[in-house]
Structure formats: structure tokens, C-alpha cells
Design a protein around this nucleic acid. Structure first.
Length: 452
RNA sequence: GGACGGGUGGGUGAGUGGCUAAAACCAGCAGACUGUAAAUCUGCCGCUCCUUGCGGGCUACGAAGGUUCGAAUCCUUCCCCGUCCA
């Protein structure tokens, strides 16, 4: 059971890579030293609420940090917040989130694990569900728990503060807008009136209940994204209330999404799901702004020292590493660097062969503007001449017929490399044959006409 | 419980009886440009039908009714949200 730990300094260097904040680093060092001496691994946990069936690259940042602890021989605890997901984490929410039903949560939890183990070592991971203990809580225990924290402290958190203020601000702005109704409003200077928001009581409970996870797991370290800092700190405080040593909290930066400005999230659509196809993952990574590459290398790969050298990064994840710097240091074309990054990421989720293939495909499709080697095939029966718009629609390359017609008018549609711009154009499908239908840059379908 | 204020397309948000499938902006999509991108420029951006036309039909401004030749706009009831007072 006693692991062979690497020297503390070496562990620390690896574990610190890419982190946003460690509270506190000296405590972490002390715990590592103790574990090094006693041979007892640290218990490091990451709690995740299964609020959606898929995880995306943004989630993998913190997951990867958990893996790093695992790599160093510590115990990784992956906690599924099947109970807390039903409450809903108010973090980063400008509005109350609708609680999930138990069924939804269970369904999501199931799909999570497969995905998580693409990063974590399945055999070495302790998987827990917080319903194990939270389900059994009595109301008495909940009240007691609530007695250990105060309302002002809870309301300190930014999410709540802004929401609380939004209501008042809203009212005020409305009033002044009314007072000035005779004055011509200047649309360029008048700031938009904020929608009012509220806070539900259950949202206050979220950090407290999840703190019991930390108590139950007797964690040495808890990981989370920077936006989780408040929650992690509450957990640390409550652990002490329950007679434990407060855990070390490590936060990871929020991954910026494909658009290069907002955080990666499903609702913003600027995400890469880890269950997506190699082609899609590769394509999406290639579409990130160059300025994001350094972050992605740091947060989405295990490379450490090499990355810092590559980008000449002094601090942690570096916005300071401009594309220009990268260029200079690497003396390589940014596109090549990006392709390498994309390949590495695909490899993580689909294996080396898939990564290589995705790279080759990308070359074909974008550099050579050719159809990829593997195009999804759709079979159609022979029939009367069919309008191109109809084909685009039934192959689902466009969500509606109107959209299909628009795309044709805009010159986005090609058949076997021949652009189609006349929406009246028909295709002969009277005898068995096949052709490639292309819409936009990346959507292809090989249509195979079959008799009968 | 009371007094006010509000709910418009994916988002923000104009619009107070016809000119409104609904300004503007953002997002999105397509084309051009390029090193994949980004930026920029151009176009599109509810659904559907055909004779693809500044064409026809349908659906849409919290919900349901009503007034009107005509309603996102007026009236009634209901639902939801916020502020203040209790």
C-alpha cells in the first residue's frame, strides 16, 4: 500500500503547473512531506455535479489536475454530486438554476464516469456519490450545520451580492428613466437596465451541504475551478467545525472557450465535448484564436516544463505569451503548433491513431479543399429528379428548407466539387450512382443512390 | 396582505392600434480574404409552398379570453418576476 513517492519538491513542481491558486501552499507542502515520510497518500477530491450528460474540455482542466495527483501516487477521489446536483450550485449563476430531478441526475452520472476515465486511471480512482451521506441527513442535522455558518458571510460571495443588488438597481433605474421621460434619452450613453434577480434559500444551502462531502471524505486537498473558490473555502471552514484539519484548496483557471473570450460552456456553444468525433475535436481546436494556444497547452495537456519553455511563460497560464512570442521561440508556423495541439487533444480521447488521422483529414479538407477520406454516407432510393435544396434538407446538412435555399443562394453548396447556386437545379437520381454533397466548409455527405 | 414596476425572436433590447416576421446590437450561418484561425468586408438570419416574387400560406411578442375591419400595442382574468411597506 505504501507508495513510492517522488521527492516533495518534484511533486510540488508537477502539481503546481497551471494552477490559479493554492490555499495555502505551505500547508500543501507540509502535507506532502508528511505523506512522503509516512508513506500514506493524500486524499484529493474533486466534486462534480452531473448536470449535463457530457463533459467538455473545460471540465477536464481540473480533472487533469486530479490526475496529476494520481500520477504522483496520491488517492484521487472522484465525487459525483448526485445529491447536490438536485440543489444546484449557484456559482457563477446570474439566476437561480432549475433543480434537476433524481432521474436526470442518475442518467447523467452514468455517462460521466466513462468520460472521466479517459483521463483518470480507473483502477486507482475512488468514486463516491454524495447521496451516500446527504440522503440520510435529518432535518436536525441540517439545522445544526446551518448554525455553523452565518448569513452575512454567505452573502459575501460575489454571485449573491450582485444578484441582491440587481433588484435595487433595477428599481432605481426604472425610476430615473421615468423622471427623464421627457428628456430625449441618448441611446449611446444610457446604460441598459439590468434585469432583477433573486436568490433562493436552497442556494444558500449548497456550499454547506457539499461541505459535508469534505468532512465525510476527510480530504487533504480539494480541487475546483477558480469560480469554486468560495465553495472550497466554506468546505475548509466547516471541516474545522467538525474537528478536522482544514483541507488545502487548489483552484484551476477557467478555460476560455473557442471564441477566445468567454468561458467554455455548453450554453455558449463555444465548447469541445470529449465525446465528439476526432474530426470535430480537431476542427474546433484549430478554430481557436492563436492567443489561446498557450493556455490550452498548459491546461489541456500533461506537458509541463516543455510548455513553459515553448512559450517563455514566467507566471502560470500565460496571456503574456502572445502569438508573436510563440512564433519567435518556436520558429514554427502557428498553424503547425496548433495542429500539434489539436492532435494531442484528440489523442487523449480517441487514441494516437485517431489523432493522426484527424490531422491528415484536416489537411485534406482545409488546405487542399478536398473531401475528407471518410465522409458519412447516406443512402437514397432512386427516384425522380430532386432539387438540390431538398437533398440538403433531407441529409440534415441544413435544419430547414428555408435555410437550405439560403445556403445555396450564398454559394455554400457543392456537388462533387461543383458549386451550385441555382436553387431550382435538380439532381438526377434515377439510376444508382454516388456523389459528395458539401455544405459550407466542413459539412459533407456522400449520397449513394441505390436501386429499390 | 398592500402599493408600485415589469414579462418582446438564441441573448440584450426598441416598439403603445395598421407602414411589424417585429428597429438596433450581440451571437449564429454563408461568401471573400488568410496560415487553420482571429480581425475585416459582404450577404443571410421563424417555418413552409410554389410560377423564387420586393409572391402565397402558417406560426410568433408570459397564458387565456375580449374590443376592433385590423392588436406585441386597448380591456378583463390568470401565471411569473422585482422593489418598497407590513
Amino acid at each position: 500500500m505504501t507508495a513510492n513517492f517522488k521527492p516533495v519538491a518534484e511533486q510540488l513542481a508537477y502539481l503546481k503547473k497551471g494552477v490559479a491558486e493554492i490555499i495555502r501552499e505551505d500547508e500543501l507542502r507540509a502535507r506532502l512531506e508528511k505523506s512522503f515520510k509516512t508513506g500514506v497518500p493524500l486524499r484529493v477530491y474533486l466534486g462534480v455535479d452531473p448536470t449535463a450528460p457530457d463533459i467538455h474540455l473545460g471540465h477536464t482542466v481540473v480533472l487533469r489536475k486530479l490526475k496529476h495527483f494520481q500520477d504522483m501516487g496520491h488517492t484521487a477521489v472522484f465525487l459525483i454530486g448526485d445529491f447536490s446536483a438536485m440543489i444546484g450550485d449557484p456559482t457563477g449563476r446570474s439566476e437561480t438554476r432549475p433543480p434537476l430531478s433524481r432521474e436526470e441526475v442518475n442518467a447523467n452520472a452514468k455517462t460521466y464516469l466513462d468520460q472521466v476515465f479517459k483521463i483518470l486511471d480507473k483502477d486507482k480512482t475512488e468514486v463516491r456519490y454524495n447521496s451516500e451521506w446527504l440522503d440520510k441527513l435529518s432535518s436536525y442535522e441540517i439545522v445544526r450545520l446551518c448554525g455553523r455558518y452565518t448569513v452575512p458571510r454567505m452573502l459575501e460571495r460575489e454571485d449573491f451580492k450582485t444578484r441582491l443588488e440587481s433588484g435595487r438597481a433595477y428599481e432605481q433605474q426604472l425610476r430615473s428613466a421615468q423622471d427623464n421621460q421627457n428628456v430625449q434619452a441618448n441611446p449611446w450613453t444610457s446604460s441598459p437596465i439590468q434585469k432583477p434577480q433573486t436568490i433562493s434559500i436552497h442556494e444558500l444551502l449548497y456550499p454547506l451541504l457539499t461541505a459535508l462531502d469534505a468532512v465525510e471524505l476527510k480530504s487533504d486537498v480539494e480541487l475546483g475551478a477558480t469560480e469554486q473558490k468560495f465553495n472550497l473555502l466554506v468546505h475548509r471552514d466547516i471541516q474545522r467545525e467538525y474537528g478536522l484539519e482544514g483541507q488545502v484548496c487548489i483552484t484551476m483557471p477557467i478555460l476560455v472557450g473557442l471564441d477566445g473570450s468567454k468561458k467554455m460552456s455548453k450554453s455558449l456553444g463555444n465548447y469541445v465535448g470529449i465525446t465528439e468525433t476526432p474530426t470535430d475535436i480537431f476542427g474546433k481546436i484549430m478554430s481557436i484564436p492563436d492567443s489561446l494556444m498557450a493556455d490550452y497547452y498548459t491546461l489541456l495537456t500533461d506537458r509541463s516544463v516543455a510548455v513553459d519553455e515553448m512559450f517563455g511563460v514566467t507566471g502560470h497560464h500565460g496571456h503574456d505569451a502572445s502569438a508573436h512570442t510563440i512564433d519567435k521561440i518556436l520558429d514554427r508556423h502557428p498553424m503547425e503548433r496548433k495542429m500539434e495541439l489539436a492532435e494531442m487533444i484528440v489523442r487523449d480521447f480517441h487514441g494516437a491513431a485517431a489523432g493522426k488521422k484527424a490531422a491528415e483529414n484536416f489537411q485534406r479538407v482545409f488546405r487542399d479543399r478536398a473531401a475528407p477520406t471518410e465522409v458519412p454516407v447516406q443512402r437514397l432510393k432512386v427516384g425522380p429528379p430532386t432539387q438540390v435544396a431538398t437533398l440538403v434538407r433531407i441529409t440534415e446538412l441544413a435544419p430547414s428548407r428555408s435555410e437550405a435555399e439560403r445556403l445555396i443562394k450564398q454559394g455554400a453548396v457543392e456537388i462533387d466539387g461543383q458549386r451550385v447556386t441555382d436553387i431550382k437545379q435538380v439532381v438526377d437520381v434515377s439510376s444508382p450512382r454516388e456523389f459528395v454533397l458539401r455544405v459550407g466548409k466542413k459539412k459533407f455527405v456522400r449520397i449513394v443512390i441505390v436501386s429499390q
